[in-house]
Design a protein around this nucleic acid. Structure first.
Lengths: 232, 232
DNA sequence: TCATGTCTTAATGTTGACATTAGGACATCG
DNA sequence: CGATGTCCTAATGTCAACATTAAGACATGA
């Protein structure tokens, strides 16, 4: 944003558009974890050329949602216990920095946005919103924390695992909805309060614990394999 | 690495090759910070097609070394004080996690590699190695720490700022070589020792301070502008 | 003289054709 | 019968032509 408060106009290319569609399809469960994505099929379905699809897949690879190997195609990330450990360890470190930085630098608008999202979570809970919506709000809250921190590199690092976290959280909520419903509002409200006016040391601890609790919830699922299985 | 200790054979495409060449050229100072990169020129010089160059530039954009805007070309990152704050804040958080994880999980080979690199720094200092070589060793040490941590996502996050750190460190050493020479071996030796056998809390602190001291050294340079100047 | 609209152009965005490759099917040999 | 070598094919990797665009040069008018 510049001095007059206007955000710079941004036009996007077909590659970004393609990436958005494919990401949504993956998160909606349209592609199984571990399944392969064929460029030519995607290009036909999206109505764009393979070049654009290819560039879009490059973006999704940055997000860690897919993996590409030389002349061997691209596959959707399949969830293993190691993946969970890696992603949530990194996320804890990033959330810690984001929370503390937001505490230092956030203005009133940003802080109000956090409160607003917590309130929206509450109403969503009351009207028995579906899982996808709850998780979307959860993600939106953390997006807002990163936005409040105002560190572009930090936000980029978050984006590099954001889609994976989204995928994992969907799985987690699917497995233990009641447990999640009981904690989600309380934990985020505590975070919002500490970011607004709390002890930085305690905030850092709570931010890390928030992530570790999510990780534990997911690792409790015994159906997630420890290693990458060779899918035929 | 798999059970038999063999790393999987990996073939690279022209895009990776092009990215390597362009990155080297930028770090060698062949392209001024803020200057524009024309795809067609790069393609001609490298002897590959624009498609490959374009894909390579996409990789460099992940590394934060260049920025691309829709139909407005790509430019080499120009250093501002804000950039330094952002990169080193994030780096402190990542190094903290990497050091502590390496302390938990590193095997003897990884630890020996750290000691070897510190020793190599000493000899480089003795024979008055040039700035580029000293910085390259510095980077190699931290690469080794990340490798020892063994978290692929963490390493990816490091790679997303690695080239920028490299660029910044070159600038820093250029400005205060003596000061750098005096500290580099001592600080890295301390890090290596704490990673091998130290108190995790203290290790985390030292890892963060190591980064903050680098940041301060760079911010001491008054010639770095606070904001992005509009280059003609 | 300055603001506004039009035109030009040099660059990027996009595309479909062509080249190369990984991995399996099959045949061959020990 | 198992191991090895050869071919085939479906996919990705690469390329060069074409379409679109951003931004400046220029002309026009108040």
């Amino acid at each position: 944003m510049n001095a007059s408060g206007l955000a710079r106009a941004e036009r996007r290319g077909l590659a970004d558009e393609a990436a958005d569609r494919i990401r949504d399809a993956i998160l909606a469960g349209h592609f199984e974890p571990g399944s392969t994505l064929r460029e030519v099929d995607l290009a036909a379905e999206l109505g764009v050329s393979r070049g654009s699809v290819r560039e879009g897949l490059g973006l999704l690879e940055r997000e860690g949602l897919i993996r590409t190997a030389w002349h061997r195609g691209t596959r959707v990330l399949d969830i293993t216990r190691d993946d969970i450990q890696e992603v949530y360890s990194l996320r804890a470190a990033l959330d810690r920095l984001a929370s503390v930085t937001a505490h230092d630098r956030a203005d009133d608008d940003r802080l109000a946005e956090l409160d607003r999202l917590v309130a929206e979570m509450e109403t969503a809970l009351d009207r028995e919103a579906d899982r996808a919506e709850l998780v979307a709000l959860d993600m939106a809250f953390h997006d807002a924390v990163y936005a409040a921190a105002g560190n572009a590199r930090l936000t980029t690092a978050w984006h590099a695992i954001r889609s994976q976290v989204h995928l994992f959280q969907l799985r987690r909520v699917e497995l233990a909805l009641d447990h999640y419903r009981k904690r989600v509002v309380k934990e985020h409200r505590q975070l919002a309060r500490l970011i607004r006016s709390g002890d930085p040391g305690r905030l850092a601890d709570v931010a890390e614990r928030h992530v570790h609790s999510a990780r534990r919830g997911l690792l409790a699922d015994r159906s997630i394999p420890a290693e990458r299985g060779a899918a035929p």
